[in-house]
Amino acid sequence: MRTHPLKRGVPLVTISLLTAVLAMVAAPFVGPTPLSMRDVFSATQPFADNMDAQIFFLARLPRALAAGLVGGTLATAGVVFQALLRNPLATPYTLGISAGASLGAMVAITFGAAIPLGLPFGGVTGASLAGAGLAVLVVYALASARHSGLSTTVLLLAGVTMNAFFSALILFVQYLSDFTETFRALRWLMGDLDVAGYQPILAALPLVVLALLAFSWLARPLNLMTLGANAAATRGVDVVRSQRVAFFAGSLATGAAVSVGGPIGFVGIIVPHLVRLVVGADHRVVLPASFGVGATFLVACDVLARTVMSPLELPVGIITALIGGPFFLYMLISRTRAI
């Protein structure tokens, strides 16, 4: 009877993280060219002559790792934004971060050749991070203008407005671009994990690690903040600081994930919801478990994207949207019925 409620969570977190690692290692074996494990890890064949190893390590493994990193990051960012906004239907994109990132990417794709942006990690990645940063600062300024903390109502409304405004700017930039640029831009907006190497992953990794460290500090304050800012404050939570950390760390995670894979939708809402159904609501369990399940989910979706219309490779964002759209509607309906 007197067991700690967290005890149940430890094995679940372990399983979810192990599954994610397994998925990332197994996914590269699936694809139009079958690979044999013996050839991939062959010690006798030099790497330069080993086709199987080259496909595995240079083409497919980076993509699986990117899927894992992006999926896990978006899922945990979703958890944080849902707790910050006290709304289980919030996503990492609710506050306009992905729209800002997309605008940045569109600008880089369309005008990148004309204006040397001089940003790190290559033009598009850097520009999408800069766009995300711009959106974050505008939304933060709006939500904290007349409050000591962050007003969740203003956050939500500002986010919705920023999404609409940036979408209009994206269309404007699209209108100015030529056919090839428009095609590249559209592919980027669909959300694609065709990262072509480890470089984008290594660029995003420090940002993600920083955000995850902040999340681990946030886990308990987030639990109390679901009681409301007032109730959390009377229990000794520094609400203003926790809200700020949640907002900026969640935005950092989202911006980093979007810079790698584009605005891949629905991972940040499906995964946290499913995880809560199994492990309960304690963020000390929900956050790490969501990382594992989110990583596994996106790796699986990407395998589906690569194989379902083989040899054609679909952008993974289409797969997550096809699964996520109906799921979101189901959630909306089942929740409104409960109210």
């Binding site: 009681l227 229990r235 609501a281």
Partner: peptide, 22 residues
């Protein structure tokens, strides 16, 4: 407070444990 509204499904024990935060 007058009303306690929880955004997520915590158990009663977890709500009581939230009092241990400080």
């Amino acid at each position: 407070p007058q009303h306690t509204h929880l955004a997520f499904d915590y158990s009663v024990l977890e709500v009581a444990l939230m009092g241990r935060y400080p």
